[in-house]
Structures are given as structure tokens and as C-alpha cells.
């Protein structure tokens, strides 16, 4: 599955850190939030697996944009956050 630019996605509302040691590249403040795929940045070995020498798993990495007003209760007219996220953290929105 390759997500096209403009695809709406949701970051999984998941907390692997509650299940044991992990190396997470998805900021907590984005979890459960909806964003839009800006572009596919390439495919890379999943750092969450690499950190534990787990078998190599190549995953698509995307640049995903989130309106800042959706992330925080503060007033954020014209601000957005653009973040690299691995496909394993994204679900259809």
C-alpha cells in the first residue's frame, strides 16, 4: 500500500511505552490525531525494530501535515506541524 499525497490519515492512538521497552519515532502529541499525507519520503528500515536488532522491516515513510489548532486547545490560526511518520503508525481517517 502506498499512500498518495492528499490522503487523510489518523495516527494510531497507541502507547507501546506502556507495554515494555521501545524506541518510538512518533511524538505522543500526534497520537489519535488526523492529518494529511504531503508526500512519500522513501522507504527505510523501521527504527523501532532496528533499535532492538529485530529482523529488518522496510517501511514507507511519509511527511504528514497536521493543523496545529487540532493538536492543542490554544489559538492557532495559521500554524501547522509537518512530521515524518512510518506507515505502521497510520490508519485510514
Amino acid at each position: 500500500m502506498m499512500l498518495a499525497s492528499g490522503t487523510k490519515v489518523r495516527v494510531k492512538l497507541d502507547w507501546p511505552e506502556t507495554r515494555g521497552p521501545c524506541h518510538i519515532r512518533t511524538p505522543y502529541y500526534l497520537r489519535g490525531h488526523e492529518g494529511v499525507v504531503v508526500r512519500h519520503l522513501g522507504d527505510y528500515p523501521n527504527p523501532e525494530a532496528l533499535a532492538f536488532r529485530a529482523p529488518e522491516q522496510i517501511l514507507p515513510l511519509y511527511h504528514v501535515r497536521f493543523p496545529m489548532a487540532d493538536l492543542w486547545p490554544d489559538r492557532h490560526g495559521n500554524n501547522s506541524v509537518l512530521v515524518e511518520l512510518y506507515e505502521s503508525w497510520l490508519e485510514a481517517a
Binding site: L41, N79, V83, E84, L85
Partner: peptide, 13 residues
């Protein structure tokens, strides 16, 4: 009137 985009470097770039 200028959009501010905060780019959070999280992974391979």
C-alpha cells in the same frame, strides 16, 4: 498572514 509550518524531525530525514 504568513503560514507557519513547524517541521518536527522525527525519523530518517
Amino acid at each position: 498572514n504568513v503560514k507557519l509550518e513547524v517541521v518536527d524531525s522525527t525519523a530518517d530525514y
